[in-house]
């Protein structure tokens, strides 16, 4: 699953824009992922300018996007 290194996040919203599941929540001061919706597609990880996300082993219950 996708881990967030919150201390590195600049709250810019680039990841939110590419997330196909619309499951990243970005308030004025915090970023969080709704993990029950996230498909581990890793687009947020690849798009983030500051390398905030880290992909750690695939979860078993996740539907893989087409």
């Amino acid at each position: 699953m996708i881990e967030i290194h919150e201390d590195k996040c600049d709250l810019c919203g680039c990841c939110v824009g590419v997330c196909p599941e619309n499951c990243i929540d970005l308030t004025e001061s915090r970023i969080s992922i709704e993990y029950d919706i996230c498909t581990d597609c890793r687009k947020c990880e690849w798009a983030c300018p500051f390398e905030v996300f880290e992909f750690k082993n695939q979860r078993a219950n996740v539907k893989v996007p087409a």
């Binding site: 919203g13 680039c14 939110v16 590419v18 619309n22 687009k43 983030c48 300018p49």
Partner: peptide, 26 residues
């Protein structure tokens, strides 16, 4: 609501930006 827009998507419009079109900036 800017690049992070969710308003359209909450309402059912598809405004997700493709990886090809999003420019990741610093």
């Amino acid at each position: 609501d800017g690049v992070e827009s969710r308003v359209g998507r909450w309402a059912g419009m598809n405004t997700t930006v493709s990886m090809h079109d999003m420019e990741s900036a610093a």
